[in-house]
Design a protein around this nucleic acid. Structure first.
Lengths: 130, 130
DNA sequence: CGGTATCCGCAGCGATACTG
DNA sequence: CAGTATCGCTGCGGATACCG
């Protein structure tokens, strides 16, 4: 119980956390993998966007959810919010360095799905025939 | 408008799909990034599990949501379900080749969060001081 | 053991209206 | 333009009971 299995321990410790109900990582994971979180991170990979840019780009998102998701991701340190004090208001959203790191992972996942969608849909159809 | 920018086109076409409301990829993405989908895929990366194994391993999941998530992922072709016709029933879940591919992406994302949680929490605290 | 079926509460989300 | 505030509802998800 003192200091055994250093290699496997660090592996299992981190995993054990995520599988635990109270693991703080779950909240972050939730923000990042949320319905609109994914799409926003992907969108911001292509550069800075204004609020209404994102609203137009991310099809189907409501103002409320866009604002909420942006706030979550900003609080987690993934997004920079720059408000220019002019009229009419002008706010720009961009990825922080941390945001870029995690966006790579998210984009990688999203890309896989889009590229392999044919395979997935084929599997779905095969499942329906059972 | 005819055939311009071949490189950027393939890039933007795939992206344009995901940003669209009716894009079928969104459903798959939803299954994979769902609250329990992520954890199940991560868990199954470590090998075949039985239903109750998963139930115990993935903290906080209810029977209903576990069954539902497993069914979704099975229909998408990410999970193999093998039911041994014995009493008491014995059912084993494992990743298909496609499931392994996508799990790598998911695990990569989950790992990043667990490894960088300190950075994220530090950013969160900084945000709270504003 | 490994589900399915049913009920139901409440958070989450969308739609709308309003503000700086 | 970029949000907040409010309301109403939908459907996610937990609890329970029952089947193969």
């Amino acid at each position: 119980m003192t200091a055994a299995k250093a290699t496997t321990l660090s592996e299992q410790f981190r995993r054990g956390e995520l599988f635990t109900v109270e693991c703080p990582s779950r909240e972050v994971l939730k923000h990042v993998t949320s319905r609109w979180g994914v799409l926003i991170l992907v969108a911001l990979m292509e550069g800075t966007h204004r609020f209404s840019d994102l609203r137009r780009k991310v099809g189907g998102v409501s103002e409320k959810m866009l604002a909420q998701t942006l706030q979550n991701l900003e609080k987690d340190g993934f997004i920079n919010r720059i408000s220019l004090p002019v009229v009419p208001p002008h706010v720009e959203y961009s990825l922080t360095p941390m945001g870029e790191e995690i966006s790579h992972k998210v984009v990688s996942l999203a890309d896989w799905i889009e590229e392999n969608l044919p395979r997935v849909m084929k599997a779905q159809q095969a499942a329906n025939r059972l």
